[in-house]
């Protein structure tokens, strides 16, 4: 993985639900830990912008979408399982 690579993440939420808040807290934490300084998280509240749900094929809330690097990957849920998130986003290759 090239070091200068920039990570663009999008977190889809629907209002300030506990699950959404938790998801944002989790992903911010992981990013600070593993991708410090080379990531951006855009939070999209579908209650405010419902028209954006179709584009990224969102059906579950919260959903984290990795836009860059491609290919697009999605993780649904409150992201409470760190390892699963890291594997899902391909931040850390699967160990063992």
């Amino acid at each position: 993985m090239a070091k200068e690579e920039k990570w663009e993440l999008r977190l889809y939420v629907a209002g300030q639900t506990p699950k959404s808040v938790l998801a944002l807290k989790n992903i911010t934490e992981y990013c600070n830990k593993y991708l410090k300084g080379k990531y951006s998280i855009e939070v999209i509240d579908l209650l405010k912008k419902p028209q954006l749900a179709e584009g990224d094929q969102i059906f579950a809330i919260p959903t984290l979408v990795r836009k860059v690097p491609v290919p697009i990957r999605k993780i649904i849920g409150d992201l409470s399982n760190e390892e699963k998130v890291l594997v899902g986003l391909n931040i850390v290759p699967l160990k063992n």
């Binding site: 889809y12 629907a14 639900t17 699950k19 938790l22 998801a23 989790n26 579908l46 209650l47 419902p50 749900a53 179709e54 969102i58 059906f59 579950a60 809330i61 919260p62 959903t63 290919p71 697009i72 990957r73 999605k74 993780i75 649904i76 849920g77 409150d78 992201l79 409470s80 399982n81 699963k84 998130v85 594997v87 899902g88």
Partner: peptide
Amino acid sequence: EIEETGEYDLEGLFIRLG
């Protein structure tokens, strides 16, 4: 292309439909 971790709901579908 979908991974699941933790709790979620299908509110996204509701919002799209709504």
